[in-house]
Simulated scan of single mutants.
Amino acid sequence: MKSKPARSVLYLPASNARAIEKARTLACDVAILDLEDAVAPEAKIEARAAAVAAVRSGGFGPRLGVRINALDTEWGSDDLAALSDTPIDLIVAPKVEDADTVRAHSSQIPSGTALWAMVETPRALFALNDIAASGGPLEALMLGTNDLATMLRTGPSPDREPLKPWLALTVAMARAHGLMAIDGVFNRFADSEAFAAECAQGRLYGFDGKSLIHPSQIDGANAAFAPTEAEITNARAIVAAFNAPDAVGRGAIQIEGQMVERLHLAAAERVLAQATTNP
Protein backbone atom coordinates (compact mmCIF):
# COMPACT_ATOMS: atom_id res chain seq x y z
CA MET A 1 0.00 0.00 0.00
CA LYS A 2 1.40 3.40 -0.97
CA SER A 3 0.51 5.86 1.76
CA LYS A 4 1.08 9.53 2.36
CA PRO A 5 3.58 10.54 5.05
CA ALA A 6 2.46 10.20 8.65
CA ARG A 7 5.58 11.22 10.57
CA SER A 8 3.62 13.57 12.81
CA VAL A 9 0.00 12.83 13.74
CA LEU A 10 -1.37 15.61 15.95
CA TYR A 11 -4.50 15.20 18.06
CA LEU A 12 -6.64 18.31 18.57
CA PRO A 13 -9.90 18.51 20.55
CA ALA A 14 -12.74 19.09 18.11
CA SER A 15 -14.44 21.17 20.81
CA ASN A 16 -11.68 23.80 20.61
CA ALA A 17 -12.35 26.22 17.73
CA ARG A 18 -8.98 27.95 18.09
CA ALA A 19 -7.14 24.63 17.90
CA ILE A 20 -9.02 23.68 14.74
CA GLU A 21 -8.20 26.98 13.09
CA LYS A 22 -4.54 26.68 14.04
CA ALA A 23 -4.40 23.17 12.62
CA ARG A 24 -5.00 24.52 9.12
CA THR A 25 -1.47 25.90 8.95
CA LEU A 26 0.54 23.47 11.08
CA ALA A 27 3.43 21.47 9.63
CA CYS A 28 2.20 18.09 10.89
CA ASP A 29 1.56 15.43 8.27
CA VAL A 30 -1.83 14.53 9.77
CA ALA A 31 -4.21 16.47 12.02
CA ILE A 32 -6.79 14.44 13.94
CA LEU A 33 -9.85 16.23 15.30
CA ASP A 34 -10.70 14.27 18.42
CA LEU A 35 -14.25 13.49 19.47
CA GLU A 36 -13.26 10.83 22.00
CA ASP A 37 -10.86 11.25 24.92
CA ALA A 38 -10.28 14.99 24.51
CA VAL A 39 -13.99 15.87 24.69
CA ALA A 40 -16.15 15.75 27.82
CA PRO A 41 -19.45 13.84 27.57
CA GLU A 42 -21.54 17.01 27.78
CA ALA A 43 -19.62 18.51 24.84
CA LYS A 44 -19.74 15.52 22.49
CA ILE A 45 -22.61 16.67 20.27
CA GLU A 46 -21.27 20.20 19.91
CA ALA A 47 -17.79 18.86 19.11
CA ARG A 48 -19.23 16.56 16.44
CA ALA A 49 -20.92 19.49 14.73
CA ALA A 50 -17.68 21.49 14.89
CA ALA A 51 -15.69 18.63 13.36
CA VAL A 52 -18.15 18.18 10.50
CA ALA A 53 -18.12 21.93 9.82
CA ALA A 54 -14.32 21.97 9.80
CA VAL A 55 -14.15 19.06 7.36
CA ARG A 56 -16.68 20.68 5.04
CA SER A 57 -14.95 24.07 5.06
CA GLY A 58 -11.54 22.53 4.30
CA GLY A 59 -8.41 24.62 3.97
CA PHE A 60 -6.15 22.29 5.96
CA GLY A 61 -2.51 21.89 5.05
CA PRO A 62 -2.14 18.57 6.87
CA ARG A 63 -4.11 15.52 5.92
CA LEU A 64 -7.29 15.68 8.02
CA GLY A 65 -8.85 12.96 10.13
CA VAL A 66 -11.43 12.61 12.88
CA ARG A 67 -11.24 10.22 15.80
CA ILE A 68 -14.80 9.21 16.54
CA ASN A 69 -16.17 7.68 19.71
CA ALA A 70 -16.33 3.90 19.89
CA LEU A 71 -19.36 2.38 18.18
CA ASP A 72 -20.51 0.77 21.42
CA THR A 73 -20.94 4.20 23.06
CA GLU A 74 -23.98 6.42 22.73
CA TRP A 75 -22.10 8.77 20.37
CA GLY A 76 -20.10 6.53 18.03
CA SER A 77 -22.72 5.62 15.44
CA ASP A 78 -23.91 9.22 15.18
CA ASP A 79 -20.32 10.40 14.78
CA LEU A 80 -19.83 8.02 11.88
CA ALA A 81 -23.17 8.92 10.30
CA ALA A 82 -22.42 12.65 10.53
CA LEU A 83 -19.12 12.16 8.67
CA SER A 84 -20.53 9.76 6.08
CA ASP A 85 -21.15 12.42 3.43
CA THR A 86 -18.15 14.65 4.08
CA PRO A 87 -14.80 14.75 2.23
CA ILE A 88 -12.90 13.47 5.27
CA ASP A 89 -9.47 12.00 4.52
CA LEU A 90 -9.43 9.41 7.30
CA ILE A 91 -11.36 8.19 10.31
CA VAL A 92 -9.69 6.89 13.46
CA ALA A 93 -11.53 4.08 15.22
CA PRO A 94 -10.70 3.87 18.94
CA LYS A 95 -10.33 0.71 21.03
CA VAL A 96 -10.58 -1.74 18.15
CA GLU A 97 -10.51 -5.26 19.59
CA ASP A 98 -11.52 -7.50 16.69
CA ALA A 99 -11.92 -7.66 12.94
CA ASP A 100 -15.70 -7.29 13.18
CA THR A 101 -15.23 -3.79 14.58
CA VAL A 102 -13.01 -2.88 11.63
CA ARG A 103 -15.62 -4.21 9.21
CA ALA A 104 -18.40 -2.29 11.00
CA HIS A 105 -16.49 0.96 10.46
CA SER A 106 -15.48 0.05 6.91
CA SER A 107 -19.07 -0.50 5.84
CA GLN A 108 -20.09 3.01 6.92
CA ILE A 109 -17.24 5.35 6.05
CA PRO A 110 -17.30 7.44 2.85
CA SER A 111 -15.79 6.04 -0.32
CA GLY A 112 -12.16 7.04 -0.60
CA THR A 113 -11.78 7.61 3.14
CA ALA A 114 -9.05 5.68 4.96
CA LEU A 115 -9.54 3.93 8.28
CA TRP A 116 -6.96 3.86 11.07
CA ALA A 117 -7.49 1.33 13.87
CA MET A 118 -6.33 2.07 17.40
CA VAL A 119 -4.72 -0.82 19.28
CA GLU A 120 -5.02 0.06 22.95
CA THR A 121 -6.34 -2.91 24.92
CA PRO A 122 -4.86 -6.31 25.89
CA ARG A 123 -7.62 -8.07 23.98
CA ALA A 124 -6.65 -6.23 20.79
CA LEU A 125 -3.09 -7.52 21.04
CA PHE A 126 -4.27 -11.10 20.70
CA ALA A 127 -6.55 -10.30 17.77
CA LEU A 128 -4.02 -8.13 15.98
CA ASN A 129 -3.46 -10.43 13.01
CA ASP A 130 -7.20 -10.60 12.29
CA ILE A 131 -7.54 -6.84 12.75
CA ALA A 132 -4.63 -6.07 10.42
CA ALA A 133 -5.91 -8.55 7.84
CA SER A 134 -9.34 -6.90 7.61
CA GLY A 135 -8.48 -5.12 4.36
CA GLY A 136 -10.86 -2.62 2.81
CA PRO A 137 -10.06 0.98 3.73
CA LEU A 138 -7.83 -0.01 6.67
CA GLU A 139 -4.59 1.90 6.21
CA ALA A 140 -2.84 2.04 9.59
CA LEU A 141 -2.53 0.58 13.06
CA MET A 142 -2.14 3.16 15.83
CA LEU A 143 -0.73 1.97 19.12
CA GLY A 144 -2.52 3.64 22.04
CA THR A 145 0.22 3.34 24.62
CA ASN A 146 -1.50 5.31 27.39
CA ASP A 147 -4.60 3.12 27.50
CA LEU A 148 -2.61 -0.05 26.93
CA ALA A 149 -0.17 0.64 29.76
CA THR A 150 -3.05 1.46 32.10
CA MET A 151 -4.94 -1.71 31.28
CA LEU A 152 -1.81 -3.86 31.51
CA ARG A 153 -1.01 -2.18 34.84
CA THR A 154 2.60 -1.67 33.85
CA GLY A 155 4.99 0.33 35.99
CA PRO A 156 6.72 3.52 34.85
CA SER A 157 9.78 3.10 32.64
CA PRO A 158 11.72 5.78 30.75
CA ASP A 159 12.35 3.44 27.81
CA ARG A 160 8.90 1.77 27.77
CA GLU A 161 10.40 -1.58 28.79
CA PRO A 162 7.04 -3.25 29.57
CA LEU A 163 5.62 -2.20 26.20
CA LYS A 164 8.48 -3.31 23.97
CA PRO A 165 6.88 -6.62 22.90
CA TRP A 166 3.75 -4.77 21.82
CA LEU A 167 5.70 -2.08 19.97
CA ALA A 168 7.38 -4.80 17.95
CA LEU A 169 4.18 -6.79 17.45
CA THR A 170 2.26 -3.79 16.14
CA VAL A 171 4.93 -3.01 13.57
CA ALA A 172 5.22 -6.66 12.54
CA MET A 173 1.48 -6.99 11.97
CA ALA A 174 1.34 -3.72 10.07
CA ARG A 175 4.16 -4.80 7.78
CA ALA A 176 2.66 -8.25 7.28
CA HIS A 177 -0.50 -6.68 5.90
CA GLY A 178 0.85 -3.62 4.09
CA LEU A 179 -0.27 -1.08 6.67
CA MET A 180 1.37 1.90 8.33
CA ALA A 181 2.26 1.73 12.02
CA ILE A 182 1.90 4.84 14.19
CA ASP A 183 3.53 5.01 17.62
CA GLY A 184 1.70 6.30 20.71
CA VAL A 185 1.83 9.72 22.34
CA PHE A 186 4.48 11.16 24.64
CA ASN A 187 2.74 13.00 27.44
CA ARG A 188 5.50 15.26 28.78
CA PHE A 189 5.45 17.63 25.81
CA ALA A 190 7.77 20.15 27.50
CA ASP A 191 10.55 17.53 27.80
CA SER A 192 12.01 17.78 24.30
CA GLU A 193 15.04 15.60 25.07
CA ALA A 194 12.98 12.66 26.32
CA PHE A 195 10.54 13.13 23.44
CA ALA A 196 13.40 12.91 20.93
CA ALA A 197 14.61 9.73 22.60
CA GLU A 198 11.18 8.12 22.36
CA CYS A 199 10.85 9.15 18.71
CA ALA A 200 14.23 7.55 18.03
CA GLN A 201 13.05 4.40 19.77
CA GLY A 202 9.85 4.34 17.73
CA ARG A 203 11.77 4.67 14.51
CA LEU A 204 14.22 1.97 15.61
CA TYR A 205 11.26 -0.37 16.04
CA GLY A 206 10.03 0.50 12.54
CA PHE A 207 7.12 2.89 13.15
CA ASP A 208 6.23 5.30 10.36
CA GLY A 209 5.40 8.18 12.68
CA LYS A 210 4.21 9.25 16.10
CA SER A 211 0.96 10.45 17.63
CA LEU A 212 1.35 13.92 19.15
CA ILE A 213 -0.52 15.95 21.76
CA HIS A 214 1.07 19.37 21.27
CA PRO A 215 2.20 21.41 18.25
CA SER A 216 5.66 21.83 19.82
CA GLN A 217 6.28 18.14 19.08
CA ILE A 218 5.75 18.43 15.32
CA ASP A 219 9.24 19.42 14.20
CA GLY A 220 10.88 16.76 16.34
CA ALA A 221 8.65 14.00 14.96
CA ASN A 222 9.09 15.15 11.37
CA ALA A 223 12.86 15.07 11.77
CA ALA A 224 12.95 11.75 13.63
CA PHE A 225 10.85 9.83 11.11
CA ALA A 226 12.45 11.25 7.97
CA PRO A 227 15.60 9.77 6.37
CA THR A 228 18.87 11.31 7.54
CA GLU A 229 21.40 12.76 5.10
CA ALA A 230 23.65 9.76 5.73
CA GLU A 231 20.80 7.35 4.94
CA ILE A 232 19.98 9.22 1.75
CA THR A 233 23.61 9.21 0.64
CA ASN A 234 23.91 5.48 1.31
CA ALA A 235 20.65 4.78 -0.52
CA ARG A 236 21.82 6.70 -3.57
CA ALA A 237 25.06 4.72 -3.61
CA ILE A 238 23.17 1.40 -3.49
CA VAL A 239 20.79 2.40 -6.30
CA ALA A 240 23.66 3.66 -8.44
CA ALA A 241 25.65 0.46 -7.88
CA PHE A 242 22.77 -1.79 -8.93
CA ASN A 243 22.17 0.38 -11.99
CA ALA A 244 25.75 -0.08 -13.16
CA PRO A 245 26.18 -2.29 -16.27
CA ASP A 246 28.22 -4.91 -14.39
CA ALA A 247 25.43 -5.38 -11.83
CA VAL A 248 22.79 -6.47 -14.34
CA GLY A 249 21.29 -9.81 -13.35
CA ARG A 250 23.23 -10.03 -10.11
CA GLY A 251 21.47 -10.68 -6.82
CA ALA A 252 24.27 -9.36 -4.66
CA ILE A 253 27.16 -6.93 -5.18
CA GLN A 254 29.93 -5.38 -3.12
CA ILE A 255 29.87 -1.74 -2.09
CA GLU A 256 32.85 -0.48 -0.10
CA GLY A 257 33.64 -3.90 1.30
CA GLN A 258 30.06 -4.78 2.19
CA MET A 259 27.79 -7.30 0.50
CA VAL A 260 24.54 -5.72 -0.61
CA GLU A 261 21.58 -7.73 -1.90
CA ARG A 262 18.48 -6.89 -3.91
CA LEU A 263 16.48 -6.55 -0.69
CA HIS A 264 18.80 -3.68 0.24
CA LEU A 265 18.05 -2.10 -3.12
CA ALA A 266 14.33 -2.15 -2.34
CA ALA A 267 15.02 -0.56 1.06
CA ALA A 268 17.21 2.10 -0.57
CA GLU A 269 14.52 2.94 -3.10
CA ARG A 270 12.06 3.30 -0.23
CA VAL A 271 14.40 5.71 1.56
CA LEU A 272 14.74 7.86 -1.55
CA ALA A 273 10.96 7.86 -2.02
CA GLN A 274 10.56 9.05 1.57
CA ALA A 275 13.16 11.76 1.04
CA THR A 276 11.25 13.01 -1.99
CA THR A 277 7.83 12.87 -0.28
CA ASN A 278 8.78 14.28 3.13
CA PRO A 279 9.68 17.95 2.98
Rank of each mutant, 00 (worst) to 15 (best):
P5Y: 04
A6N: 09
R7G: 07
S8G: 03
S15F: 09
R18G: 12
I32A: 09
E36G: 06
A38W: 00
V39I: 14
A40I: 05
K44P: 11
I45H: 09
I45Y: 07
E46C: 04
A47Q: 00
A49H: 09
P62W: 03
P62M: 01
G65H: 01
R67D: 02
E74H: 12
G76E: 02
S77D: 13
L83E: 03
S84A: 15
S84N: 10
V92Y: 00
P94F: 01
E97R: 12
R103E: 14
I109D: 06
A124Y: 04
F126R: 14
D130C: 09
G144Y: 07
N146H: 15
D147Y: 03
L148N: 11
A149Y: 01
G155T: 11
S157Q: 08
K164T: 10
A168R: 05
L169P: 07
A174K: 01
A174W: 08
M180L: 15
M180C: 15
A181M: 09
I182T: 02
N187T: 11
F189G: 10
E193H: 15
A194Q: 13
A200Y: 07
R203I: 07
G209F: 02
L212D: 01
I218L: 02
P227W: 05
T228W: 03
E231Y: 08
I232A: 10
V239C: 11
I253H: 11
G257W: 08
M259N: 12
V260K: 10
V260T: 13
H264F: 05
A267W: 04
E269I: 07
V271R: 04
Q274L: 15
A275L: 00
T276D: 15
N278M: 15
